[in-house]
Computed example of a mutant assay.
Amino acid sequence: HLYSKYALEDIQVLELIEKDIPSIHCYLILNEDTKIKCHFLHPAPPSPTENDTSTPRDKELLVIAKQIAKKTEATIVTGDLNDVAWSPTTKAFRQISGLKDPRIGRGMFNTFHADYPFLRWPLDHIFHSEHFTLSKIERMPSVGSDHFPLLSELIYDPK
C-alpha cells in the first residue's frame, strides 16, 4: 500500500522483473511548481519460499538505478529492498543511480526483524538525489509488523 498526504500523479504500478511483484512509480506534488519522482519498491527476497537466488531482486534494483542515472530530476527511491546496506547490489545501486543514502555516517537503522532483537538488519531503505538534505532519520517503535518503521524527513533544497 502507498499512502501520501501529498498529491500523486502519473502513477504506474509495474511488475518490472517478476509477475505479481509490483513496484509503484509516480510523481509526488510538493506544490504546483515542484514534482518529485518517486519509486516505491519491494522486490521478493532470496529465500526458500520465494526465490532460490537474489538475481530477481538485484535486477529490479539495477533496472531502477539505470533509469535514474539518465535523469536530473529530484528523485526518491524507498522501500523494503530485502537487501542489506553493505551488499554489492546496494553499493552498485548507489553508484549507478548517483543517489545518496542518508544513513551513511549516521548509523545502521536495523529495521528487520522486529521480533528478534539478536537478529536485525537494515532492509528498509531510502535513497535521494542531491535535491534533498536530511533533517531527521529514526527507527520508530514496533507497529506489529516484522519490520520497524523508518522515519526519514527530507528537506527539498534544489540549490
Rank of each mutant, 00 (worst) to 15 (best):
K66Y: 01
E32A: 10
H39M: 09
S47M: 09
E50P: 01
A65Q: 01
I29P: 09
E60N: 06
I36D: 04
P48Y: 06
P45T: 12
K37C: 04
D52V: 14
V63C: 02
T55Q: 11
I24A: 05
T53D: 01
P56R: 15
I29C: 13
I24V: 13
L61W: 05
I24S: 03
E18G: 06
I64Y: 02
A65C: 07
R57A: 00
H42W: 07
C38W: 09
A69K: 12
F40A: 12
A44E: 14
N31L: 07
A65Y: 03
D52P: 14
I68N: 02
T34V: 14
N31V: 04
Y27H: 11
D33V: 09
P56F: 08
S47G: 06
K35G: 01
P45F: 11
L30T: 07
E60K: 10
H42A: 01
L62A: 00
I36E: 05
H39K: 09
R57F: 03
D33W: 11
E18F: 11
S23C: 13
A65F: 07
D33M: 08
D52F: 11
P43C: 08
L41R: 04
H25Q: 11
Q67G: 01
F40H: 11
K59C: 02
C26V: 10
P48S: 09
S47E: 12
L30V: 06
D33F: 13
A44I: 13
E60P: 02
L28N: 10
H25S: 01
T53H: 04
N31E: 08
K19E: 09
H42Q: 09
P45L: 12
K35P: 01
C26Y: 15
P48V: 07
T55P: 00
I68H: 03
L30Y: 12
P48T: 09
K19C: 00
D33L: 13
L30A: 11
N31K: 14
R57P: 00
L30K: 14
H25L: 05
P45N: 15
P56T: 10
S54P: 00
A69Q: 06
Q67F: 02
K66R: 14
S54N: 08
F40Y: 14
T55L: 06
K19F: 07
H39T: 06
H25I: 08
T53P: 00
D52W: 13
K19S: 05
P22Q: 08
D20Q: 13
K59D: 03
H39V: 08
S47R: 14
I29D: 10
I68S: 03
A65D: 01
P45Y: 12
I21W: 06
H39L: 11
R57L: 02
L28R: 13
K66V: 00
S54H: 12
A65N: 02
